[in-house]
Amino acid sequence: MYIYLPIAEQPINAFIVLGIGWLVGIIMGMVGIGGGFLLTPLMIFFGIPSPVAVASVANQLVAPSVSGVLSHWKSGNVDFKMGTILLVGGVIGSSIGVLIFNILNAIGQLDLVIKLSYVIFLAIIGSLMFIESLKLIIQTKRGKATRGKLHQHNWLHGLPFKTRFRKSKLYISIILPLIIGIIVGILAALMGIGGGFIIVPAMIYLLGMPTSLVIGTSLFQIIFVAANTTILQASQNQTVDIVLALILLIGSVIGVQIGSKFSNFMKGEHLRLFLSFIILLVGFKLILDLVTIPLDIFSISIIQ
C-alpha cells in the first residue's frame, strides 16, 4: 500500500516503512539504545531527502522514548535530577544543532555533512561495540569474567559546581552532564538521533552512573531533545513529515515492547555483537556511496 508523504512529496510503501520501524524498534527494545541512528540512514537509502529524514526521525523518536521511560520509571530506574541537567544541555544543544543545520542547508553542504557525521559515528560506535562485546563473550567462555571498578576518579571529578545525585549515588560537578547534554543535543538535531549510543557510554564511563539507571535516564532526556528538535525543524525548515513519523513510530513502539520482552531471554553481549554488525554494515554502505564515482556527477534539485 502506497501512502503519499505530504512533506517529502513522494509516495512510499507504508508496509515496508512500518516493517523497518518495527525491526528497528525490536533492536531498540533489546539493546536499549539505537533507533535514530539506524532509521535515518535507512530512510535516506529509501530515497527520502536527508533533511526530511533527519527531522521526521527526530519526531518519531519521541514515542518510543516516552514508552520506554514509563516502563523504567515504574521500576524506579530513572534519575530525574541527572536527567533534568542533561536535558537542559540537550535543549541548548539541539537549538545550536538546528542553527548549524540551517547554515549548512544554505551553503548546500547539508547532505554531505549528515552523511559524513553518520559515517564517522557509525564506524566508531560500531567498532567499539564489536570489540567490547567480543571481549566479553571470550571472557565469559574462559570463565573469568572480571568486573572493573564502579567508576574511577579523575580530573573530571575536580570541576566546580558539585552537586549530589542521590539516585545515582554520585557527587559530581553539573558542568559535565551539561556539556554531555549539549553535545548530544547538537548531534540529535544534525543527525536525527536521540543520541542514546553516545550518552549511554558517556554516562557509564564519564559520569560513572550505575548501569541500571543509565537507559531510563537517557530516554528521559531524549524525549525533550527530540521534541525540541521536532518543533524547531518544523517551524524553521518545514522538514518534519508527520505521516512518515507516524508510520515509523507505530512500527517502532510495538517493536520496542516486543524487543524488551525478548531481551530477558538473550545475553546482552550477543545482542551488542549483532547490533555492531548492523551498525558497521550501514556505515559501510554510506562510505561506499560517498567514495564511489556517482553515476552522474551532476544532480538537480527543485528550489523555491
Binding site: 523518536l61 519521541v62 516516552v66 521534541a227 521536532t230 518543533i231 524547531l232 518544523a234 508527520i242
Partner: peptide, 14 residues
Amino acid sequence: YGIIAVIVALFFGW
C-alpha cells in the same frame, strides 16, 4: 504543526 507532531508522538508512546 511542530507542537502537534510532538503531541501525537507523546500520545502514541504513552
